[in-house]
Design a protein around this nucleic acid. Structure first.
Lengths: 261, 261
DNA sequence: TGACGTCACTTGTCCTGACGAGTTATGAGT
DNA sequence: ACTCATAACTCGTCAGGACAAGTGACGTCA
């Protein structure tokens, strides 16, 4: 490199130079970066070094590379997909939890029998290798084309206790909640949000670009005696999706306490 | 490669072979993978191909590489850090929202005056370039050493309306909430959860390993007339942190409706 | 016994060279 | 004017080589 010596390896210096050029506005969002050949000439380094620098910027999610076309500055648009959770206490003590999106199920849901893994078993309060129904859905937001993977896991022993559930476990969550309520359960939910890098099959199924994490939402429906009944998992690309929790107290509730972060 | 031809490039075949070896249990969590030299001999490919395969597995977060030591299967342990949000309606209509963690503020919080960016301005219902107080904290969980970045953003016009807030904006969130309540505000919160790849400075501040996303939690405190008052942001490595929302209805509330995902 | 230097291992960096594969503009032929 | 083959660009893949840098074990020397 002909530039001033920065800390670290050559390719990191190149990456830092390109990063600054992007952040300073020399390359605006969506604009093409110089080609590898041009970067080689510009910084007087070999092609592996340039490619290494580009790989670093890709891993940061700062740029996007298209085969045969070039590298482009990624657009950091607002997520097209907002999953709303509302916890509202309206009059009469009624409780409402709602989504804001209209999903479309592209293909028929895939239902199969399986067993709990160590991870899912722990969430459902079961041992590993317990028999469960699994129902997979590919959800699509028709407005933007954003995709999400939805999976419902119902233990056999829960399904058998509820009339008509074991015969058709591929119901929509609402219908299942209704069945559980009719069976006398008082329901509450816990939702666990995590993020991680996608597995290869998730990358293709969700059509994720480089360096895009998936958000993993695990919702557990609890019944009477706080017994975990059903596990729902929602996976969506973090570049398009965000989760919003709205926590509302009614007017009488002004007192609050304890720590918050 | 001496193995059966799989789809895709050579390095992807090698990566797939190693991935299967990990998932099938040939290499358990924490165990060292064969060295690059050994992988070259095993699959009869060149070093760039092996390194490319390893890079792919690193980007997936499946393995971890330590300079001079080797590659290791990453432990997919349960997050050490669980941020709990409880939305409980106990008797008398009391409202409680609480964390489950005890944070330690390693260094003194850094307070400075700044301006809203386009992103933060939109969240607070302000234009860009509006004057705000910003308070940065580095939080540490003493039990595990897990770190998180906390930022409080208070617009000038909010701070000036509240007695003693403008003089000492570096209070803990609870104290600020108390001040707002005393000033006659009825508070409610909205929390937006997103995930993305960390910027380089976040990587170092949070001590993140490779291919680890950050979870970005933006909590907005709303006051009377739903006016956005304060923005809190919490950033933590997604390898260690998870967010749990517990949604509880009291016993009278059995009815529920609308879609859920 | 203890301290320390050396050496053999590991991954990291960087180079040269070559060809394959996707994209697009050019231009010849119809 | 239109079609289509070609060429010239882009990035992707793969080879082989060389040296730097981090790690740990081993053996030597005090």
């Amino acid at each position: 490199m002909s530039e001033i010596q920065r800390p670290g390896a050559l390719y990191q210096q190149v990456a830092a130079a390109i990063r600054e050029a992007i952040l300073s506005g020399e390359f605006t969002a969506g604009a093409p970066l110089p080609s590898e050949t041009q970067l080689i000439a510009r910084y007087q380094v070999s092609r592996p070094t340039v490619r290494n620098a580009i790989a670093a910027l890709r891993a940061e999610g700062l740029i996007e590379v298209r085969h045969g076309k070039g590298s482009f500055v990624r657009t950091t648009g607002t997520p097209a997909l907002t999953i709303n959770r509302r916890v509202t206490r309206s009059r009469g003590g009624q409780f409402t939890s709602a989504d804001g999106i209209e999903w479309t199920t592209a293909e028929a849901p895939a239902v199969f029998r399986s067993h709990t893994t160590q991870a899912t078993g722990a969430l459902l309060g079961l041992d590993a290798e317990e028999a469960v129904f699994v129902c997979d859905r590919l959800l699509t937001d028709p407005a933007t084309g954003t995709r999400a993977l939805h999976r419902t896991t119902i233990p056999f022993e829960v399904a058998e206790g509820i009339d008509t559930l074991a015969e058709a476990p591929d119901r929509e969550p609402d219908a299942i909640y209704a069945l559980l309520s009719e069976a006398g359960h008082t329901l509450w939910w816990s939702e666990t949000v995590r993020a991680r890098m996608p597995l290869p099959d998730e990358r293709t199924a969700l059509q994720l670009p480089d360096a895009t994490p998936v958000m993993h939402l695990a919702r557990i429906t609890h019944g009477t005696d706080d017994r975990p009944l059903i596990l729902e998992e929602l996976r969506a690309g973090a570049d398009r999706a965000q989760l919003v929790y709205r926590i509302t107290a009614d007017k009488a509730a002004a007192t609050r306490s304890s720590r918050n972060a």
